[in-house]
Amino acid sequence: MKWLRFVALASMVILVLSACAIPEEPTRTALVFGVATYREGIIGYPNLSLTDDDAEDMATMLKAQSWDVSEAIANTNDPSLNSVASKAAIKNAITDLQSTNAGLVLFYYSGHGFEYGNESFLCPYGSITTGNQLLLDQMISKNELYAWFENAGIEDVVIILDSCNSGGFVEAGATIDSIPPVFGKYDETGEYYITDGAVAYSWFVDSLTDTVKSFISYSNSSPFVVISAAGAGEASWEGGNNGIFTAAILASQEKTSTADCDGNGYIDTTELFIFCAEAINAGWNTRGTIPTSNWDVFFPHLSGTAREYALWATK
């Protein structure tokens, strides 16, 4: 029986090693978009202050992590230059991946987001007129974004959105996302908001009815992993040097002890989500200054896919 013991032991060792080791990095392509200028020559709305910094810092970080990065930022007074972050340009950038060996694709967007008719949209350059009117046909819906990737034949896609109402891009898939589309709520006096960790279920088993219904009614979902800064009904805020959400993303590779939960030396999509969620909840939602409205509170969301992707190594 010695050989049997040897085989069993060897199998265990191989299994443990294979579970711990991460394969050589695949081809990784990042499309990074930032829209700070929607209307040239004005200060303030609809223009944003830090979305260009978000995109630049994300591109820098991803390049340092050996991603093949393509960045397009609208932040000039020249419409022809800003149009690199228009809807048509974003669609073309994704479509062009079809002719390349893109591998794992990370799509990052920082800019305005919008909710209309229970549907979330990204607002690329060109989607807001000089009269501050939103042009629905120049905005990007979830279905459009997903379809562009599917039509390009890209199988491995991670989408990270730092924009208002971006939760509408997140599919719960075969799961129930227990973070509501609007996370914060007012206290009993209605004077201050509170964040009560307002997940839908107090106890694990509370989710039983909803999850059984979800299982029965499930048909299919996208394999794309999406991390949104905010819920479908929430704003995503910026402050300091970056958007609050993007600042948390950038911090994830520095704070390895808290971000790399499994200690394998890599941040994956789930670890990134929970790190950002905890950072926003602890650092923004419950900060010392009490915000004056429920509008200030937001909480990231993550797709309910069975898979998760490794993104970058910790420092």
Binding site: F204, T211, F215, F273
Partner: peptide
Amino acid sequence: GGMLARYDLSFSYFFFP
């Protein structure tokens, strides 16, 4: 039987037989 599950590090619950 049935299992009520929650993905690690997430708020995603799911059920399956």
